[in-house]
């Protein structure tokens, strides 16, 4: 599947920009040399599984899951970094969840490798991946009740 075909599919899932009169999907071609990714798509949190499925069908590899705490905006962002092993194209899927209730569905069922990445993100940010089979601390102690990468965590 070519990158443009993937973009088309992901655009259907992506959130629409709210500002303009005619909302466009937030699926942006990015210059690899500048941003490190070829395609940057923001999807609604409940639809990350759909995006993951599209990329899994296209034989992309899930490389990492990054959480970011945008405390000023009251949101947390989860970035899924995908790469295509045959030609090195990169796709980033972003989803924003409210800080008050950071929940989004797990992609473990689609990429088994997401298991640990999601556990790690849960460790550090307290983002709950609903449907995750085993959301216990991965790197932190098993009784850890804090989330060190949240911006309001003092250290």
């Amino acid at each position: 599947m070519s990158l443009s075909a993937i973009k088309q599919k992901l655009a259907e899932i992506a959130v629409r920009s709210a500002d303009a009169a005619s909302p466009v999907p937030l699926a942006v071609d990015t210059a690899h040399a500048v941003r490190g990714t070829d395609l940057d798509v923001t999807v609604p949190p409940e639809r990350v599984t759909d995006a993951a499925r599209v990329l899994d069908e296209a034989a992309f590899m899930l490389e990492s899951i990054t959480g970011v705490d945008f405390i000023a905006e009251g949101q947390m962002e989860v970035v899924y970094d995908y790469t295509f092993t045959a030609s090195g194209e990169r796709v980033a899927i972003r989803a924003r969840v409210p800080r008050a209730k950071p929940e989004l569905p797990t992609v473990c069922g689609i990429h088994p490798g997401a298991n640990w990445h999601e556990r790690e993100t849960h460790d550090f940010f307290g983002i709950v991946f609903t449907g995750h089979p085993d959301l216990i601390p991965l790197l932190l102690p098993e009784d850890a009740d804090f989330h060190p990468l949240r911006k309001d965590y003092g250290a």
């Binding site: 490389e63 092993t85 090195g88 990429h111 088994p112 490798g113």
Partner: peptide
């Protein structure tokens, strides 16, 4: 691929994925 294994592990399984080339 499903686990995101890279480097000599994926190349040892026949996938010529090397970031230096990709």
């Amino acid at each position: 691929r499903r686990y995101g294994a890279t480097g000599p592990v994926i190349r040892g399984s026949g996938v010529a994925y090397d970031v230096r080339k990709a």
